[in-house]
């Protein structure tokens, strides 16, 4: 978990580290406080993980973390309870995620390059509009969008969820990349242009390779958001064959009531697994993305 890199030691750190006994005691108290807080924060998650291996009656009686016996059956039962085996839902979610990532990477980086490097009339105004759309609640546009996609016959397909990504509607990522590209030295562009690179050449050969960190942040966030997204999938995907992990979990909960909390928890853990994995691997990018743009 300690993948975070602290490149520079911040000033306050130096102050705190000049140690006397009193400072040592204070530091101990801080650690204690932080550890308690951290424990409270992640206890429910750890407990759910352990509950996913517990027999059903233990889920409702044992607040501890160690199951009396490990029940893999929660996982096997959860995997097969729904109309499709659970990997079908994972597969559907993966399709959406892949489409969304490709869409965001291509379309947002193109727009970002234009905003950051090219001059064209109305750039400032469009930039402002773009920032404004970051804040626009999806609820305001979802109904006409639904009507539109419905008329196109796209309800109960993945298109309503992927096409907007191909059209750079996740303006947040444009903003992220604009910030990043602006940080790149302009001399590179000019050198490329002297070498005969056109705008597309510069974009593809110079800017994109240098943008890898921003692209990685975009990909990871897109993964997490798409994987977690419930609202638009709830609206557009009703067909049992197209349902995704969040929809499957909801179906599971509504349909079995409390009969199989163990299996429900097991599938919840399965659903959270990929996010946790990306969190471990891509934490650096996530933190940077947040610090840069301040969203989620």
């Amino acid at each position: 978990m300690a993948t975070m890199t602290e490149t520079k030691a911040p000033a306050p750190a130096r102050r705190a580290q000049s140690g006397t006994a009193a400072v040592g005691a204070r530091r101990f108290v801080f650690h204690l406080l932080l550890t308690i807080a951290a424990m409270i924060m992640i206890y429910p998650l750890l407990w759910m993980l352990s509950a996913s291996f517990k027999p059903i009656d233990e889920i409702f009686s044992d607040p501890g973390l160690i199951p009396s016996s490990f029940q893999w059956s929660n996982y096997t039962e959860g995997w097969t309870t729904l109309p499709h085996p659970f990997h079908k839902y994972i597969f559907n979610s993966m399709i959406l995620v892949a489409g969304s990532i490709v869409g965001n990477l291509v379309s947002c980086s193109m727009a970002a390059y234009a905003f950051a490097r090219l001059r064209f009339p109305g750039r400032g105004a469009f930039f402002a509009i773009m920032l404004g759309t970051i804040m626009l609640p999806i609820h305001v546009v979802i109904i006409p969008q639904y009507i539109l996609f419905n008329n196109l016959g796209w309800v109960d397909t993945f298109w309503p969820l992927i096409v907007p990504k191909l059209l750079a509607t996740d303006a947040f990522f444009i903003f992220l990349m604009v910030q990043f590209i602006r940080g790149l030295p302009r001399e590179l562009d000019e050198a490329a242009s002297i070498d005969g690179c056109g705008y597309w050449g510069t974009y593809l050969r110079i800017i994109m390779p240098l943008c890898m960190p921003a692209l990685a942040t975009t990909a990871i966030f897109t993964f997490i958001w798409t994987w977690n997204d419930f609202y638009s999938q709830l609206i557009y995907l009703r067909d049992v064959d197209l349902q995704t992990v969040p929809l499957a979990l909801r179906l599971f909960m509504d349909s079995t009531g409390q009969t199989s909390w163990g299996a429900l928890f097991a599938m919840s853990i399965v659903a959270l697994g990929p996010i946790f994995g990306f969190f471990l691997v891509g934490q650096r990018y996530l933190v940077r993305g947040i610090a840069t743009t301040g969203i989620k």
Partner: peptide, 8 residues
């Protein structure tokens, strides 16, 4: 934001 957490 995930459904799994809401279920939990």
């Amino acid at each position: 934001a995930s459904v799994a957490i809401a279920i939990m």
